[in-house]
């Protein structure tokens, strides 16, 4: 399955299905919960047409602040109402001192942060009665790290029992920004826990820095890394994210088709090997 992030900018095109036809759509509950009027009608039409996966923005799993139970109750109701098959979030924090930041801040790679996050993931999973798929986020600087990124992630997954959302573009961006080998990094991840893949474009803003913008087409080296990664994974849903500089639908559909053909090639090969 190859899906696309649901944006209001191309909602009508998704409903018509004339120029773009993903296998599923992904949406952020925060952008749609308690919405009425025109957009609720549109949401219902999209949900009638496509399976829905959800990717949250405001859980702030790495926050020092307490989990927001009212928010979680809304998320739970939303996931039930729209029969959402998978709920993912970010391995980052976006709230501190009771203030939302509305962006993904990097968590210090430290063991006390691991314990903190593990406990919170477990609370959320218990409450929602479903596993969380946590996304390895792109980051531009480490902050007060006492352990490696890979150890940090592995400890979180091992002790929380969460799944992983592997954003291949993020791994590419992080490998570039922090000068490590993306493939070696991916090989060290608990790949059997990967439940979902994201793909996106980015923007290089300096000779040594890439920003994860979701505003450009996916570049060839990220496609190559994606193809290499699939060879090490069981089939999982793949999502194309495009949040800014929305192109013509035919261009987005082109990216979806390219992703799909790579999935077919790699996972068909794997099926043949298994058989």
């Amino acid at each position: 399955m190859v899906g696309v992030g649901f944006r209001r900018e191309f909602a009508e095109e998704l409903i018509s299905g004339e120029h773009i036809r993903p296998d599923f759509v992904e949406l952020a509950p925060e952008n749609w919960m308690n919405i009425g009027g025109y957009w609720r009608k549109i949401l219902h039409r999209v949900v009638e047409k496509y399976p829905v996966l959800c990717h949250g923005l405001s859980l702030s799993i790495g926050s020092p602040d307490a989990l927001n139970k009212e928010f979680l109750a809304y998320v739970k109701a939303f996931l039930q109402e729209y029969k959402v098959q998978l709920y993912s979030e970010h391995l980052s924090y976006s709230k501190c001192d009771n203030a939302h930041m509305y962006d993904l801040l990097p968590i210090p790679f430290r063991m006390d942060a691991v314990r903190h996050i593990v406990s919170r993931i477990q609370q959320v999973q218990d409450y929602l009665q479903r596993p969380l798929a946590m996304e390895i986020v792109s980051y531009y600087t480490p902050v007060a790290a006492e352990m490696s990124e890979i150890d940090f992630i592995n400890e979180v997954v091992k002790h929380s029992g969460c799944q992983l959302l592997l954003d291949v573009n993020n791994i590419y961006v992080n490998a570039f920004n922090h000068q490590y080998d993306a493939k070696a990094f991916i090989q060290q991840l608990p790949l059997s826990s990967v439940a979902y893949i994201h793909m996106a474009g980015h923007e290089q803003v300096a000779p040594d820095l890439i920003i994860d913008t979701h505003g450009e087409p996916i570049i060839d080296p990220v496609y190559d890394l994606f193809e290499w990664t699939l060879a090490h994974l069981q089939p999982v849903p793949v999502l194309l994210e495009r949040d800014f500089n929305i192109p013509e639908m035919i261009e987005l559909q082109g990216e979806l088709s390219r992703l799909k053909s790579i999935c077919h090639k790699q996972w068909k090969l794997k099926d043949e090997l298994v058989a």
Partner: peptide, 19 residues
């Protein structure tokens, strides 16, 4: 909470910068 005061303070400082 499992966070040590130092980690907590670092996260606060980082978010202060952002704000």
């Amino acid at each position: 909470m499992n966070l040590l005061p130092d980690t907590y303070h670092i996260q606060q400082t980082f978010s202060d910068w952002c704000r």
